[in-house]
Simulated scan of single mutants.
Amino acid sequence: MRIGITYDLRSEYVALGMSLDDAAEFDRDDTIVHLEQALAELGHTSDRIGSARALMARLTAGDDWDLVLNIAEGIEGMGREAQVPAILDVYGIPYTFSDPLVMSLTLHKGLTKQVLAAAGLPTAPFAVISKLEDLEGLTLPYPLFAKPIAEGTSKGVTSLSKVTSPEALRAICEHLLREHQQSVLVETYLDGREFTTGLLGEGVSTRVLGSLEIKLRSDSDQVGYTYRNKENCEELIIYDLIRPADDPLVKEVEALSLATWKTLGCRDAGRVDIRCDSLGKPYLLEVNPLAGLHPEHSDLPMLATKIGMTYTELIGAIIACATPRVAASRQSKARRLPRKQL
């Protein structure tokens, strides 16, 4: 197949004047190189497209692909991860990973928690703070944890995110509201074990790849998976592959992750992050249907490596999950109006 690749590169935005911190969620240049190499090994032809704007320019010029491997994060707005999927839907071009609805929902941590709680899945008690006045009357017990409501790569999460007093909570919320220009998610702080579970597939065909326990080294931020810990994970984090046969808690974690994935309608591949309370009960933290794909720095490929799956095999499995949509797209093309008539 001819497979286009949509992405946002850190280097491109930094060259345009964006700070390294602001560009942290975007991909490294070598991620695209590794993807191209994997696609070539799988027998596909790849085509670098780039950002949503670049995609629109290519589509306007009449370009087409059998499939688009989409890892574009987007830049502006709560629906930024949905922009490339929505554009491709307009043109009837199939792509990897979840659709615009899922991408928009899961980027907003508060809405995701509401949906999952309504489905009966455990998530820590929380509040959404859109302005400082929303803190008035907050009854959640301390300690609490505060983070931006729609950021990835742990952006905005620091050692100050865990708070034990109203004064500290107000200070961190004021900082996050100002710095990130979005609401703040405040939730009960969970002080137990933390896991990230990888999944492949869609609906009833979804399978669990495995689970990594995220353990903090002594010189890391001890409150959790902060931005500093994530960006320097090779030095600050220990990732232990733990199988459900060896730990009953992991069996519970993976069952909860699988139920979450199916409930939200995620597809192809991604991760569910779970943290336990002091009694060992697991709660949903976040859902990542657009997981990073750097072979050595991103959690999903690191998990694949630990279970004996090569990077090329992981990319091949993702492409295989999306392939039925390619066939469906080809069958329906004859029924579509020519693009110039749309």
Results as ranks from 00 to 15, higher is better:
Phe26Tyr: 15
Tyr91Pro: 02
Ala82Arg: 03
Leu59Pro: 05
Thr45Phe: 03
His44Cys: 09
Gly62Trp: 06
Trp65His: 06
Thr112Met: 00
Asp64Met: 06
Asp47Asn: 03
Gly50Trp: 10
Met78His: 00
Val102Cys: 12
Ser98Gly: 09
Gly62Lys: 01
Leu35Cys: 14
Met78Ile: 03
Leu111Arg: 04
Gln37Asp: 09
Gln83Asn: 13
Ala86Val: 07
Asp29Ile: 15
Tyr95Pro: 02
Glu76Cys: 14
Tyr91Ile: 06
Leu55Ala: 10
Ala72Lys: 02
Leu55Gly: 14
Ala86Glu: 08
Ala38Thr: 08
Leu55Phe: 04
Arg58Pro: 04
Met103Asn: 05
Leu69Ile: 06
Leu69Ser: 03
Gly43Leu: 13
Gly92Tyr: 08
Gly74Thr: 07
Gly43Pro: 13
Ser98Tyr: 03
Glu81Leu: 08
Ile75Trp: 03
Asp29Phe: 13
Pro85Asp: 12
Glu73Ser: 13
Leu105Glu: 00
Leu107Asp: 00
Ala38Pro: 09
Phe26Val: 13
Glu36Asn: 11
Asp99Asn: 14
Gly62Glu: 09
Gly92Ala: 11
Thr60Trp: 10
Ala57Glu: 03
Pro85Leu: 12
Leu67Gln: 05
Ala72Phe: 06
Gly50Asn: 13
Arg28Pro: 07
Ile49Lys: 07
Phe26Pro: 12
Ala38Asp: 05
Ala38Leu: 11
Pro85Arg: 08
Leu42Trp: 05
Pro85Lys: 08
Arg48Ile: 07
Leu59Gln: 14
Ile32Glu: 00
Gly110Ser: 05
Asp89Arg: 15
Pro94Met: 15
Tyr91Asn: 05
Asp64Pro: 03
Val90Arg: 11
Thr96Glu: 04
Asp29Gly: 15
Asn70Glu: 09
Phe97Gly: 03
Thr106Ser: 08
His34Trp: 13
Ala52Gly: 08
Ile49Leu: 13
Thr45Pro: 01
Ile49His: 00
Met103Leu: 09
Phe26Asp: 10
Val68Phe: 00
Phe26Gln: 11
Leu105Val: 03
His44Gln: 08
Gly74Met: 10
Ala57Gly: 01
Ile71Tyr: 02
Gly77Trp: 02
Gln37Ala: 14
Ile32Asn: 00
Phe26Leu: 15
His108Asn: 12
Asp63Ser: 07
Arg53Ser: 14
Val90Glu: 02
Thr96Cys: 12
Leu105Phe: 00
Ala52Ile: 04
Ala82Pro: 00
Pro100Leu: 13
Ile32Pro: 03
Ala54Pro: 01
Ala38Val: 12
Thr31Asp: 05
Leu42Cys: 08
Asn70His: 06
Leu88Asn: 10
Leu35Met: 11
Ile32Trp: 01
Leu55Val: 14
Asp63Tyr: 01
Ser51His: 08
Val68Ile: 12
Val84Asn: 03
Thr112Phe: 01
Leu101Gly: 07
Asp63Trp: 00
Met103Thr: 00
Tyr91Trp: 11
Gly62Leu: 04
His108Ile: 01
Asp27Pro: 09
Leu101Asp: 08
Gly79Met: 10
Pro94Cys: 14
Arg53Leu: 10
Asp66Gln: 12
Ala72Glu: 06
Leu59Glu: 05
Ala40Met: 07
Ile49Gly: 06
Leu42Lys: 07
Glu76Tyr: 11
Leu105His: 01
Asp63His: 09
Met103Glu: 02
Leu101Gln: 06
Leu101Pro: 00
Asp66Asn: 13
Ala61Cys: 10
Ala86Ile: 07
Leu39Tyr: 04
Glu73Asp: 14
Thr106Gly: 02
Ala57Asn: 02
Phe97Asn: 10
Val33Lys: 15
Glu73Pro: 05
Thr106Lys: 04
Ile87Arg: 04
Gln83Leu: 11
